[in-house]
């Protein structure tokens, strides 16, 4: 049997999970991905103080995997683009785990730092390959094959109103954390547009309207995508920004998006979730916002 490697279904898994899975598989590992987030998983991270909900959820997922695998795959994603960082909590994730959880398997937390040099990615790939006794060439080949596996987002245009749902993928696509907001909006007959439906080049272009380049990659993309949706031509009828309580970058990004939505005359709502968010209040807010959009659009 090969080496068993667990990937927790949390945080950056929602962006790179498909590639990681394939990559590790190509390297000869037996990959185990934790299941969907449940209430228990969410509660397991409660021992941490003040961190955001996705980090607590990540704890729960690691808990799930801990005794089932030989390695945990949690690369330390420091930076994925020149001059930018990811998020301090993502950078410190593996250390938070090691100091707060007993009985952990070895964590593969190779530094991925492209802040200064893009070539550093190959350094990281090579280092991971070594763990599986693969030479650089075999590792690069595995990466090359895995990259083809990148998830393509398809945008299906349906009848109905359109709303942009801006938020980190690990919030809006985790059905437990987001309280299944996408499905709820669909039920209310709204088409939902998320940041990953905007190509990074377009987001980059739109983000130029912001005075200073945002130095968190994912927030940069989110803000850029939100601005792209706001462009003249009315791609969407309103914007919902979804964040988890105490998310650092979002406190800033949401404010920027809100300022731009305000000056573009577009309805904007900030939805904050944490582990105490109650369903009834959440649903009321979504319904009130969509009702308002319906009425507003009927008038114009």
């Amino acid at each position: 049997m090969g080496i068993r490697v667990g990937i927790p279904r949390c945080l950056l898994f929602y962006q790179y999970g498909a590639i990681w899975e394939k990559f590790l598989g190509e390297l000869g590992a037996e990959v185990l991905v934790s299941g969907d987030t449940t209430r228990q998983i969410m509660d397991a991270g409660g021992e941490l103080d003040e961190v955001c909900l996705p980090v607590k959820v990540a704890f729960g997922h690691v808990h799930e995997l801990a005794d089932k695998v030989d390695y945990l795959f949690l690369p330390r994603m420091i930076s994925v683009a020149e001059g930018q960082y990811t998020c301090p909590k993502i950078i410190g994730m593996s250390d938070l785990l090691r100091t707060n959880m007993a009985g952990l398997p070895a964590i593969i937390d190779v530094d991925v730092n492209l802040r200064q040099k893009k070539r550093n990615l190959y350094k990281a790939i090579n280092e991971i390959g070594k763990i599986f006794n693969k030479g650089p060439l075999a590792s690069f080949y595995a990466w090359h094959k895995a990259k083809q596996n990148q998830r393509k987002v398809t945008v299906a245009a349906l009848a109905g109103r359109r709303v942009a749902l801006i938020g980190h993928p690990y919030i809006i696509h985790d059905r437990q954390i987001s309280m299944d907001v996408i499905k709820r909006l669909h039920k209310l007959n709204f088409n939902v547009f998320t940041p990953e439906m905007i190509a990074s080049r377009d987001a980059e272009q739109a983000a130029k309207a912001i005075g200073k380049r945002i130095f968190w990659s994912y927030s940069h993309h989110m803000a850029g995508a939100a601005l792209a949706y706001m462009k003249p031509g009315k791609l969407v009828d309103g914007i919902i920004f979804m964040t988890s309580f105490s998310c650092g970058p979002d406190a800033i990004t949401a404010e920027i998006v809100s300022q731009h939505a305000h000056s573009n005359g577009l309805p904007y709502m900030l939805l904050t979730v944490d582990e105490h968010t109650a369903e009834a209040g959440f649903v009321t807010r979504i319904e009130a916002f969509t009702d308002m959009l319906n009425r507003r659009c009927a008038l114009c």
């Binding site: 990811t86 912001i210 130095f215 968190w216 300022q259």
Partner: peptide, 22 residues
């Protein structure tokens, strides 16, 4: 002051400017 991240301090100026202008 500005900054290069990942601490939020580096982005204060830009957001505060927007708030004060509004």
């Amino acid at each position: 002051c500005g900054g290069v991240g990942p601490c939020r301090l580096g982005y204060y100026g830009e957001v505060q400017k927007g708030i004060l202008e509004q």
